[in-house]
Structures are given as C-alpha cells and as structure tokens.
Design a protein around this nucleic acid. Sequence first.
DNA 1: AAAAATTAATCAGCTAAACTGATTATATAT
DNA 2: ATATATAATCAGTTTAGCTGATTAATTTTT
Lengths: 141, 141
Amino acid sequence: MKLEKWNQSYGFLLGKVLQQMETRFADGLAQYDINARQYGVLLFIEGNPYSSQKDISESLQIDRTTMVSHIDHLETLGFVERTRNPNDRRSYSLLITPRGNDVLNSRWEFLIKTELAVLAPLSQQERKLLKDLLVKVWITL
Amino acid sequence: MKLEKWNQSYGFLLGKVLQQMETRFADGLAQYDINARQYGVLLFIEGNPYSSQKDISESLQIDRTTMVSHIDHLETLGFVERTRNPNDRRSYSLLITPRGNDVLNSRWEFLIKTELAVLAPLSQQERKLLKDLLVKVWITL
DNA sequence: AAAAATTAATCAGCTAAACTGATTATATAT
DNA sequence: ATATATAATCAGTTTAGCTGATTAATTTTT
C-alpha cells in the first residue's frame, strides 16, 4: 500500500477502517436477519429503554421514516416490542424482548471480536489510545 | 454525552467522527455538483493517472457498474476525460482535465480544513498520533 | 372550553447507491 | 481457429435516506 495524497486524509483512513469492521460484522448478523444499523437500534434501546422512535432517530441520526421500517422489522422478528407510552399516547415506549436480548448478547461478543481483528496491528495500549482520541472528538460533536 | 455500552464500540466512534466530516465536506462540494465519493474518484485518478474504471473500482471498493455513472457524471462536468488505452482497447485511460484539477486543488484545501475542524478537540500531536494509528491499521487491510 | 398549532408515527412516492445478470467489444489461452 | 476471460455498459432490483402529506394525540392560544 502506497501512501499518497488521497490516503492522507483522515476521512479516507477512517472510512477504510470502518468499512472493514462493518463488512465483517454484517456477515455475523446475517443469520439473525438484521443489519448493522438495526443492531445499533437494539443497542440503543437496551441502553435507553422506553425510548420513542423519535428519540432513537435523533440520537442515532437515522431518518424518522426509515426508523419506522427498522422497528417494523425488529418487531416482526420478535426482538423489540412497541408498547404505548401512557404519558403520551402519540409515541411508543420501545422495549427489548428476551429474544432480542439473546441477539444483543451474542452479537456484542462477536462485534468486539470483529473490531479487535481489524485492529490487530495495534497493541492493547495503542487501541486504548485510539479509543481515547475518538471519544475525545466524539463528545464534542 | 453519556458513555454507554452502545458507544463503546470502535465502529460506533469511527462512524460518528466520519459522519461529521462527510456531512461538512459534502456541503463544500455541492457548488461543484459532485459528492464525496466522486471527489474521491478524482483524487484517485490524480494520484494514478491512466487508471481504468476497473482499477478505481477495486482500489476504492466502489461497484463497477456504479463507477460507470460516476465517470459519466465527472465527464459530463468536464472534470475527467476518457481516452482509450492503446495497449488494451477494452479499457479506458482516465485523466484529469484542467478544470478537474481546479476542483481538486480548491476542495483539497477545504477537505483539510474540514477535517481539522472536526478534530479540533485534539492537539496537533494527538492528531498525528491518530493518523499514525489509522495508517498502521489501514496498511494491513 | 373551543380553536389553532404542534408533535409522533405512518404512508406514498422520489432519489441515490449497491448489487445481479446479461451484452458487446476486445484480448488471451488452448 | 476456437474457447475463455476481461472492461465497460445497460437493464432491472434492492435498500436507505429524503420530502411531503395524513392521522391521532397533545399543547397552546384565544
């Protein structure tokens, strides 16, 4: 791999590393019939139970109308449940089902393994450094 | 911003940082009627003149049939030129036009500025560290 | 309290990008 | 020569994001 102008950009490098992680992770999700975004939605609901679809849309920056299809799909698979929010019956309170929880746990381990595989060239210390730098940027976004 | 399970993944963090850079960069490309991928194609051809569409497809991992439309678009705008490869008349030798070169230079400065703005929370030393870590991962992909 | 404005979810329709599979022209291998 | 392989292209499908409109519920204004 030659270092040229076009791969001196942070965006290019971030994109390449991310692309690897996403492709590999997607392979491990296929058996559950969900994609990486939908797994992200599951993760978010796990960490923020009783969220509305709007909450998730805004936090994950996924379009509200696309969110409808994601939740439809996850509900059909029995991974999430739409319950009404008694304080505002316009919105749902979304919850992870036991089946959804199994997927979350099983695929979380897989995700971590996948990311470590892509970051294999880095030492544990370097990986920690990378995460710290990324978090430092992310918290200001 | 709360640090939870769902944002402890490298993939999540990489994605968020990249998303910021891409959105901002796209805004600065709009006036030239191209998107970030098409700018990436221009950059590649600049660094690898006489490339074929297949070369670009493989290196940038953009589908070959999608590449046809990208090159069509860039050719219509007068940013690249399709010339025949005399050694293999099945493939093209793609070249940047002077107009394409103007776009490349002007938007390169903008790209660098955009990336630095997103990475503003990092010191110069930390940015260098981040790039070194990303390059280290990328060269093994 | 009634009317007006706002909001969450949904639906229909559009666009862009990735993908599959087929076709054409050219090149390489047997 | 014949068969196989390859680069570019085209037609058609899928998926995600987007716009704009609708419905039901909530909040604000009069």
